[in-house]
Design a protein around this nucleic acid. Structure first.
Length: 857
RNA sequence: GCGGACGUGGCGGAAUCUGGUAUACGCGCAUGCUUGAGGUGCAUGUCCCGCAAGGGGUGGAGGUUCAACUCCUCUCGUCCGCACCA
């Protein structure tokens, strides 16, 4: 017998079915009519390389198996795909290969979509989203406009990362330990005026809602950590000989009695006032100049301990003593008030005090600081071990201290968040131009969009006139590009490279930025920065179900104008409200934990804002989120520099899509990732061929029937919980059994097995389904059910232990296994057991019906 | 420093949620068969010590329990996130 002829020809069979499925529009969801919508979403890829990475395929396969499973369970599954191709990732790749990002986008799109087309996922190709499509970013700009109109977008000064060698602005993610990811040079900070989104306004809601989300725990923890809520107090300090108050923040109020000096951040706005006219003035200002805006990453160890006395003292409201005021660069303007009360408790403060010979207080026992009064009387300095105490102070004591402090009017309660406002502007080319206009004339006259007639409908939503006037003053001269003029298209330019001066490429194009002011009609200047790529991906899930419903969808794959769809035309919104109500929020979201903080936080923020403005009826876009693991290669992280990046293409060609899908899912638990090894890949290819060679017979043994029903139960449970690795192992066990029994399997039973296999290996399942006269398509069949009468064993194994150690097992009828006396009799007759019980007194017998008996002697 | 996850054969990993036959499934390896050879395919074996009977064994030390990979305490180690955070 020639085995070669029996080899599964994956290439022709897989492409045959891919074509048939496409022709049958098997994966195109009837968005309008679906009775049981299930929105199965996965994070769309950002093209930052030639093509798809095996890590992408890993994520998509894990998500797709779930989608296919849900479809067979009777849900109308919508599984969309698109490209997050606008922004810095794609731009950097284009720059690297010396191409215009706009040209490269088309090449990448073709490549990615070709690859995504052969990974066996049930993508609905009639509704793709590309973030660089003007019909998409029209609405990204629309969101920016709404943000501005609702007072959530503002201008402010901010530091940006600047690499002096690459002569470019870098995103935070591109700065690793203070150095440029690409060239290794130390990154500088430059203070520039930027656009921000006021995400901090939602800090509390973003935090509170984490309790309602069904997400992987580690992602929720990361989100809470990122928001970083800290409750504490602000203590007011009167400066001696000056009419000035210094406010310091503390999260550990039990220490406050121990503090002996104050430290300000070098860039604190009150520094100049403090030192004005003192003998220390010049020295301090030199210090400020040196350390202003310096971050840990750009400083040396010695710098960290540098400080300077301001020549001023404040009165400690707790003790009435004088406290010297110092400047030191370990105080950050970013946190709290930029002023620290310092004591011997903190190792950093302690070292600083030692160096500059600042007096400290004695340390007393923890027992003395159990209440605010105790703490006060003892001038309570905590002692745990040596001069430094841990920060483990009970929340109850903190609460009492805060109340006490508020009562004595020494300070006030304060909640501090680590979350910062979202810096949204980029001095780059490849992104949606920020749809704003600045008019100098209007600015001088104090006019802005907030003073126009158009503003009235929005007044209420931003809290009435006072808020509006405040915004008006801060936003003088600012107008949005009129909504009817959106999209504000990104022009094709030749000088798209980021400038060595930190100026956006579009700022060199008069024809782009010269516009008339929407307010006064005079010459004004259009914004030339583009928005952050995270804004593009913060709302794409809202778009997918509505793609095509406005008749002018995605550039490349727009459904041809369909008159029957005119009744649900979108009109003035990025999405169709009825469709959105039907399909959102997303039923299941799958993605990597690595960028789950930023992307998921921003998406939640945008959704909450849209909800508050009345555009959406839900606050949380992803009630269910599953974080998958990372694929590594031969024990090491995949990276271009190591040259160990696996591309799905070669493996699909060699072993087939199904084998690769199965292998990826078999490597390890889906939430933990796995190690990609070529030899193991071959093993999976062998199994696919074994499935191909499975033979059927006229009859099946009862054992086979039982095994199959158990398998149905196992695969159903494992797939639901996404334990794909153990599900595949169970299927392997089943095929091993079939081989052992020489193909003792009827076609009907084989077909049930194929149904279980279908979500995992869609092509071979379909082919074998057809060969066994199953009706097209296997993927539209209902998920099989099991009969519990086949699950119950009639022969069971009873474990016999002596003192908890396994000594023998008994094979008995299921009924017998429940009878204690019966089992005891059998066990005591057992030769092996007899040996262990001989000459011993049985003190106790533990019996678990149907499972085990344990003799305690 | 704070927070989280994890630690099981030569390797990836099962069993941990719900305490009850530790190492399922796969890789690798070994031997044999098939084959002109390589490959493929098939069969058998594969935690450790021991001829066997038996004994030991899930990073380490304790504890709870009739029984612990599983639960608890401590400890060591690895990985991830946050961090001059007051």
């Amino acid at each position: 017998m020639d085995v070669k002829n029996q080899k599964y020809d994956h290439q022709s069979i897989e492409s045959k079915w891919q074509k048939k499925w496409q022709e049958a529009k098997l994966d195109e969801t009837n968005i309008e009519k679906a009775p049981k919508p299930f929105y199965n979403l996965m994070m769309f890829p950002y093209p930052s390389a030639e093509g798809l990475h095996v890590g992408n395929m890993y994520a998509f396969t894990g998500s797709d198996i779930f989608g296919r499973f849900k479809r067979m369970q009777g849900h109308n599954v919508f599984e969309p795909i698109g490209l997050d191709g606008f922004g810095i990732h794609s731009e950097n790749f284009a720059l690297k290969i010396g191409k215009n990002p706009m040209d490269q986008a088309k090449v990448s799109e073709k490549n990615y979509y070709r690859q995504l087309g052969v990974i066996g996922a049930m993508f609905d190709w009639s509704r793709t989203v590309e973030t660089y499509d003007p019909n998409y970013y029209k609405w990204t700009q629309w969101i920016f406009v709404q943000m501005f109109k609702h007072g959530l977008a503002y201008r402010g000064k901010a530091e940006v990362n600047w690499c002096p060698s690459c002569k470019t602005v870098l995103a935070d993610e591109q700065v690793v330990d203070g150095r440029c990811e690409r060239c290794g040079n130390i990154v500088e900070k430059r203070l520039l005026e930027q656009w921000f989104f006021r995400i901090t306004a939602y800090a509390e809601k973003l935090l509170q809602n984490t309790n309602t989300l069904n997400w992987s725990e580690k992602v929720l923890v990361a989100q809470r950590q990122w928001i970083g809520k800290k409750e504490g107090v602000i203590i007011h300090h009167k400066v001696k000989e000056l009419d000035e108050t210094l406010d310091a923040f503390s999260a550990y109020p039990a220490w406050l009695f121990a503090d002996t000096f104050l430290v300000l951040a070098p860039d604190h706005p009150q520094v100049a006032t403090l030192v004005k006219g003192t003998t220390y003035e010049n020295e301090v200002l030199d210090y400020v100049k040196k350390y202003k805006n310096s971050k840990k990453s750009t400083r040396t160890k010695e710098d960290e301990k540098e400080g300077i006395f301001t020549g001023r003292y404040v009165t400690d409201p707790f003790s009435g003593n004088d406290m010297p005021v110092w400047l030191a660069n370990f105080a950050l303007m970013d946190f709290g008030t930029g002023i620290i009360r310092c004591s011997a408790h903190d190792p950093r403060d302690f070292e600083f005090a030692q160096k500059y010979k600042i007096s400290l207080k004695e340390v007393v026992d923890r027992e003395d600081v159990k209440t605010p009064v105790n703490a006060h009387e003892n001038k309570g300095v905590l002692k745990d071990s040596g001069p430094f105490s841990g920060k483990s102070i009970s929340p109850k004591l903190i609460h009492e201290m805060v109340e006490w402090i508020a009562e004595k009017k020494i300070g006030k309660k304060e909640i501090n968040y680590h979350l910062r406002d979202w810096l949204i502007s980029r001095q780059r080319y490849w992104g949606p131009p920020i749809p704003m206009i600045f008019c100098e004339k209007c600015a001088k006259e104090g006019k802005s969009w907030f003073t126009t007639e158009e503003v009235k409908p929005y007044i209420e939503s931003i809290g009435g006139w006072p808020a509006c006037q405040r915004l008006s003053a801060a936003m003088a001269g600012r107008y949005t590009v009129p909504e009817k003029d959106l999209p504000l298209e990104l022009p094709y330019i030749k000088d798209y490279k980021p400038g060595d001066d930190g100026i956006a490429p579009l700022a060199k194009h008069k024809e782009f930025y010269e516009v008339n002011c929407p307010g006064c009609g005079n010459k004004a200047r259009r914004e030339t920065d583009v928005s952050d790529t995270f804004l593009d991906s913060a709302w794409y899930f809202l778009r997918y179900p509505s793609v095509g419903l406005d008749g002018k969808s995605s550039l490349l794959r727009a459904p041809k104008g369909d008159a029957s769809r005119s009744d649900i035309a979108v009109g003035g919104l990025p999405w169709n409200p009825a469709i959105t109500k039907k399909w959102l929020p997303v039923d299941m979201y799958t993605g990597g934990a690595e960028h789950s903080v930023l992307h998921l936080m921003y998406s939640r923020f945008i959704t909450m804002a849209l909800h508050d403005w009345g555009y959406l009826d839900f606050e949380e876009p992803f009630p269910n989120f599953y974080a998958h693991g990372l694929v590594i290669k031969d024990g090491a992280k995949m990276s271009k520099s190591k040259g160990n990046v696996v591309t799905p293409d070669e493996y699909i060609k060699l072993y087939g899509t199904d084998a690769l899908r199965l292998y990826l899912m078999f490597m390890g638990p889906f939430d933990l990732g796995g190690d990609f090894r070529d030899s193991a890949m071959e093993g999976m290819s062998r199994w696919v061929n074994r499935i191909w060679r499975l033979r059927t017979a006229q009859t099946s043994s009862e054992q086979m029937q039982r095994a199959l029903h158990k398998l149905v139960k196992k695969i159903t449970e494992d797939t639901e919980k996404r334990r794909y690795n153990t599900a595949i192992a169970a299927m392997m066990e089943f095929t091993n059994l079939v081989s052992d029994q020489n193909g003792n399997l009827t076609p009907d039973l084989l077909k049930i097995f194929l149904l279980l296999l279908a979500p995992y290996a869609p092509h071979i399942a379909e082919e074998l389904w057809e060969k066994n006269r199953g009706a097209f398509s296997i993927h539209q069949q209902p998920w099989p059910t099991f009969d519990s009468k086949y699950i119950k064993e009639n022969q069971i194994t009873i474990i016999i232990q002596v003192n908890g150690k396994l000594r023998d097992t008994l094979q008995v009828q299921a009924d017998t296994g429940k009878e204690k006396s019966e089992i005891e009799k059998l066990a005591k007759e057992n030769e092996k057991i007899k040996k262990y019980l001989e000459g011993q007194t049985v003190k106790k017998i533990i019996f678990v019906p149907g499972k085990l008996m344990n003799f305690v002697v």
